[in-house]
Design a protein around this nucleic acid. Structure first.
Lengths: 358, 358
DNA sequence: ATGAAAGCGCTAACAA
DNA sequence: TTGTTAGCGCTTTCAT
C-alpha cells in the first residue's frame, strides 16, 4: 500500500486562488481579517477542487480535533447489545449527538469504559492521548465519577454530564423529578390513592430525583408514601423482587411506577403470574419508553426520556464553548414527556364506586 | 483554551529508554529489527510513562489512521432511530465492529450517507479527506454501489461489502439463501405444502438470494412455488400489501416467510384483522430477529442474522489486509440461524389428519 | 489585511 | 540492528 496522501491540500487551494496558505486557513476557520472578495475567491477554489481539511493535520497543529467522545458503561452497553431486548440508548445518543456533530463538522465516537476504577483512568487517558477529543459526553453512571471529571479537568477537555447536576462541565438532566411527578399525577387523576414506586439504584443520582418527584406529587395530592417505595437496580430480577415486596405489603398499591423498562416488564410479568390484570387490577407506568414497552400486552404507559435531544444539547454546549460562544451557567434541563398507553386505568374500587353511582 | 499538546510523546519515551525515536516507533508498530532487550526496555518506558501514540500524528506521517468507517444509509438509519421500533442494526454493527476494532487499536466511526447519487460521492469524498480511514465497511443497499466502490478503489482504501458477492473488496454475506432454505425446511417439516414468500426489494441483492433459497427448498420437497411469491420493499405497508396478495390468491398459503421483520409484523397484523390465528391458521417466519419479534403475540419464529459477527469479520479482513497478512480470495459466509418460537405450527389440515388418525 | 517561517508527533527513507 | 533526516497538512507565531 502506497503512502496515502491527501488528494487536495490547503496548498492546492492556495495556489488555485493565488493566495497564501494562511489566508486559506483563515477562511476555513472563519477567522477575521479577510476581505470579502478574498474570502469568496478562496471559497470558490475550495468548492471547485472539492477540498476538505484533514482532521489529523488540523489536530496536529491546532487545538481542535473535531472529535467528541461519548462515554458509555462498557458492561451495561454490551449486555444490552447482546441481549437484543430493544434498549436503544446508544441509538438515541447517536441520533441526537452524531447528527448535531455533523452539522458542525465534528464526529462523535462512542467509547466504552469499564466501571471498575483501576481501568477507568488508564482507559480514558489512553483514549484522550490517542484521539485528543475536543469534548467528552458522560452518561450515567459515570456522569458523577470524580476520577473521570478530574482527569478531564486536568487535560482541559470540556465535558458534558448527562443525568447530573454537579458543578464542573455542563450538567444536563432529563427532568427526572418532573417526569416522576407527571407519572404520579396521571395516576392520581385516574383515581389512584396508593401508588407504589420502584426506584433505581442509588449510584445513579437520577434515581433519587425520581423518588423525590413521586414523593412531592403524592404529598401534593395528600397521599401517603409509607410502604410504597421499593428499590431495585434497573435489572429485571431486581424489579420482580421490588414488585413482590410492594404487592405483599398489607395494603398493596393499586398502581406502580417503575424507574425503568426492565423493572416495569418484570412487574408486568409478576402481576400476570399472580393472576392480576393490567390495568384492571393494577396500573403500571414505566420510565424510558424503550421500543419493547410498545409491544407488550397491554402496551405500557411510559415516561419518554428525551435522550436524543439531551445528547444534541450536550454536543452543542461543548462546541459552543470551544468556539468561544457564551454558554449557560446552570444545568440544562430537557423536559420529559408522558405517553399514555394501555397499562393505566382507574383503580377497581373507583370503578365500583362509579358503577354504584350509575 | 491553551494549545493542547500531547502530554507524553514518543520523544519522552525515547529519552526515558535512552534510544532513538525510530526504535520506539518500531516497537510501537511491532516492526522487525529490534533486539528483544531493546524492545523490553522501550515497552517498560511506555508503560511507566503511560504513553499512547497520537492517532493524528500517526496518520500524518504514516499510512495508517486507525479509523474504519461504517457506511449506513442515512434515511433508513435515521428513520429507524426515530421510530424506536427496536431495529438494532447499528447496535449489532457496533457490537461486532467496534469491539473488534478496539482489540486492534482501531476505532469504528459510523457514517451516514445519502442514497441519492448526487450527494454520495461528495459526502464520501469529504469523509475520506477529513478522516483518511484505513478501511470502509459498506452495508446494504450500498454494498454494490459502483460510485462508492469506484471512489474507494481510486483512493486505494480497502473495503468490505456486507450482503454482497460482487468482486472488489471483501464480500461478506449472512448466508441468505441457506437461511431461507432453513426457514422453508422448518415449515415443510411441520407439514406445510403451500409456503408463501414475501421478498425484499430487488435493489438489495440479498433479496434475490433469499428467494432462491426458498425456491430450492420448495423444489427439493417437491412443492410448487407458483402464485406464492410477493414482493415488498421492507416497509410495513409493503408487507401488508404483499401478504394481502398472497392471502387473496385462489389457493392461499398455510405459511408465510417474510424477508424482514417489518413485513412480518405487517403480515401478522393483517392476519389478525382477518380473524386468522397465528400459528393455528397460518404459520409465520420472519427474517432479522430484531428485538420486537420476541414481544409480539405470538413471538415470531425467525431467521437470526449474524450482524455482529459479520461486522467483526469485515473489520478483521480490513485490518489483516493493512497488516499485510493473507486474506481469503472468495466471499466470507457467516451462517444464519433459525429460532423457533410460537408463530409456526403444523397446518390445520395436517392436524385434522392427525386427529382423524388418533 | 496578508504572508513567511516554524513546528505539532510521528513514520518512511536512508545512512551507519 | 540502530540512528538520522526530511517531511506529512495544517495552524500558530511573528513579520510586513
Amino acid at each position: 500500500m502506497a503512502r496515502r496522501r491527501q488528494a487536495v491540500t490547503i496548498r492546492h487551494v492556495a495556489a488555485d486562488a493565488g493566495v497564501s496558505l494562511q489566508t486559506v486557513s483563515r477562511v476555513i476557520n472563519k477567522e477575521p481579517n479577510v476581505r470579502p472578495e478574498m474570502m469568496q475567491r478562496v471559497q470558490e477554489s475550495i468548492a471547485r477542487l472539492g477540498y476538505v481539511p484533514s482532521i489529523a493535520a488540523q489536530r496536529m497543529s491546532g487545538s481542535r480535533s473535531y472529535l467528541i467522545l461519548a462515554l458509555n458503561d462498557r458492561e451495561r452497553t454490551i449486555a444490552d447489545w447482546r441481549s437484543r431486548q430493544g434498549a436503544d440508548w446508544v441509538d438515541q445518543m447517536l441520533l441526537g449527538g452524531m447528527l448535531t456533530c455533523a452539522e458542525h463538522g465534528y464526529r462523535l465516537i462512542i467509547e466504552l469504559v469499564d466501571t471498575h476504577s483501576d481501568h477507568i483512568e488508564r482507559e480514558l487517558a489512553g483514549a484522550i492521548a490517542a484521539l485528543q477529543p475536543d469534548g467528552v459526553i458522560l452518561t450515567p453512571p459515570h456522569s458523577e465519577n470524580a476520577l473521570i471529571t478530574g482527569l478531564l479537568d486536568r487535560h482541559g477537555i470540556s465535558y458534558a454530564r448527562i443525568g447530573s447536576l454537579a458543578p464542573g462541565g455542563f450538567a444536563l438532566t432529563m427532568d427526572d423529578d418532573n417526569a416522576a411527578r407527571l407519572a404520579t399525577e396521571h395516576l392520581v387523576a385516574l383515581g389512584h390513592r396508593r401508588i407504589g414506586f420502584i426506584a433505581g439504584p442509588s449510584d445513579y443520582e437520577l434515581s433519587g430525583w425520581r423518588v423525590t418527584g413521586w414523593r412531592r406529587a403524592m404529598a401534593a395530592a395528600g397521599l401517603a408514601t409509607d410502604d410504597l417505595l421499593a428499590e431495585g437496580d434497573f435489572s429485571f430480577a431486581s424489579g420482580r423482587d421490588a414488585a413482590q415486596r410492594l404487592l405483599d405489603s398489607p395494603a398493596p398499591p393499586s398502581a406502580i411506577i417503575a424507574s425503568n423498562d426492565q423493572m416495569a416488564l418484570a412487574t408486568l410479568a409478576l402481576l400476570r403470574t399472580r393472576g392480576l390484570d393490567v390495568p384492571r387490577d393494577v396500573s403500571l407506568v414505566s420510565f424510558d419508553d424503550t421500543p419493547i414497552v410498545r409491544f407488550t400486552h397491554p402496551a405500557l404507559t411510559a415516561i419518554v426520556q428525551p435522550i436524543a435531544e439531551v445528547a444534541a444539547r450536550a454536543v452543542e454546549l461543548i462546541i459552543a464553548e470551544r468556539a468561544g460562544r457564551a454558554t449557560p451557567d446552570g444545568p440544562t434541563v430537557v423536559p420529559a414527556g408522558l405517553v399514555v398507553r394501555g397499562s393505566t386505568a382507574p383503580p377497581r374500587d373507583a370503578m365500583v364506586v362509579e358503577e354504584e353511582r350509575g
